[in-house]
Simulated assay, not measured.
Amino acid sequence: MPRYALKVEYHGAPFAGWQRQADQPSVQGAIETALSRLEPRDHTIAAAGRTDAGVHGLGQVAHCDMDKDWDPFRLSEALNHHLKPDPVAIVACAHVPEDWHARFSAIERRYVFRLLMRRAPATHLKGLVWRVNQPLDIAAMDEAAQRLVGRHDFTTFRSSICQADSPLKTLDHLRVTRVDGPHGPEARFDVRARSFLHNQVRSFVGTLERVGAAAWTAHDVADALAACDRARCGPVCPPDGLYLAGVGYPDDPFA
């Protein structure tokens, strides 16, 4: 069966997350339903990461197996037609080898988090950012973020329902920068690692926001990490503002 890699963009607000669920809308379910309209049968796709409810996708990657040898462009166009009106789009499609896997072939996941700093409620960006009322100290947040980079036991920043075999992970990159946009200043978090624990990025952001608000210091973040105790984590921020921005592979299937 020909296998295809799909680069997927989606707005996470209407969905209970990526993963198919019996009684709630999901991104996986929307794509599998669209596939069944092209080839009437049950379809099961696999993705690079299972994003939670309300989390968005800019560069999620999934793969599907088809009976027909589709031209990749025509497959993406047909899927986009049947995905309407769901806020899901196939932005690229490519033939891949039969043993290529969207999850297991990946060597990097990249996340972006957008935190809007203004007192007025978000209107155009509602659901797309986490809004806080006060300005934050971006330099202090970035300094504290560097305490998290490297290979650590991230138990403190791991959800209690995380199913990963081990809390040991290598965080390759975490930077916090200021971005001045038309709706106000944002704190932008750029995060990269081979893989993440459940709620790890949201735990980072919520904790670092406390640093930006001068309630925590970089030393507090380092101490919380060393404690390996979930109770030492700062507040877990909401999913608004979190995006799976991209997935890296040894050979980019979309290049």
Rank of each mutant, 00 (worst) to 15 (best):
R232Y: 07
A145D: 05
R119A: 15
H101G: 08
G248M: 03
F157Y: 15
A16Y: 11
F104H: 10
A48N: 07
A13S: 11
G57A: 15
R74W: 13
E209F: 05
G248Q: 04
S105G: 03
A94Y: 05
D65F: 14
A120W: 07
A102E: 03
G181D: 15
P250K: 04
V91G: 10
W18R: 01
L58P: 05
G246R: 07
L83H: 09
K7M: 12
R131Q: 14
R232K: 13
D65A: 14
R202A: 12
F204V: 11
K126C: 10
G57E: 00
D99P: 09
L116W: 01
V201F: 04
S105V: 04
F154T: 01
R114L: 12
Q134F: 14
I138K: 02
L128V: 04
M117V: 02
V247N: 00
L58G: 07
A226W: 07
N199E: 15
R50Y: 05
F15L: 06
A213S: 15
A34P: 04
M141T: 09
P14Y: 01
A78L: 14
G181R: 12
S105T: 06
A245F: 13
A102S: 14
Q163A: 10
A140D: 04
A215S: 12
N133V: 06
V91N: 08
Q24F: 09
R37L: 15
E186K: 09
S76E: 13
L244H: 01
H124Y: 12
H219F: 11
Q28C: 05
L242A: 01
D172C: 14
A34D: 08
